[in-house]
Amino acid sequence: MQLKPYARTLAVALSLAFVAGCANTGGTQDGSLDGTAGGRGETGTAGTGTAGTGQVSGTGLGDGAGQMAGSRIPEARTIYFAYDSDTIRPEFEPVLTAHARFLRSNPSADVILHGHTDERGTREYNLALGERRANAVERFLDLQGVSPSQVEVVSYGEERPAARGLNEDAYAQNRRVVFAY
């Protein structure tokens, strides 16, 4: 489902408005997971991307960023990715920072980073893409001073979807890295 040019423009405009709205509320919502996918992805879906994906993570960023003590495993354990991307989105950096802090303060704690993709494309290539996402998180933790011996990467590719369905909502929930302690 390819967007017509005017629809792309509309989708981008809507998503920009949505992002702006988030910023106005202080950036504490885990919103607009994939606001611009409709305008960017090769197979991005029209319209739904902007409105439907705001509720993907049940845990707001506030939870993750709020775990300052470093004594408890941060509650937010899933971060999400854009289509065909392993770039860590700025809104999820506080989640990763919280996990890095926890792991640094608890050198005996181990975490497995489970990399996942959406269902589109071939399974074995997606397995490799899931590993790329988890590796990106591992590098972030490494830069934050977490010992490599505490972190392991396991990619599940598209094999363990968090949500079923052939639509952007489900896809957005499935493109994720999960911290498994």
């Binding site: 489902m1 390819q2 090769e42 197979t43 589109r120 494309g121 071939t122």
Partner: peptide, 9 residues
């Protein structure tokens, strides 16, 4: 092979 394009895969 699997070919991906505008209509999916």
């Amino acid at each position: 092979l699997i070919h991906g394009g505008e209509r999916g895969y």
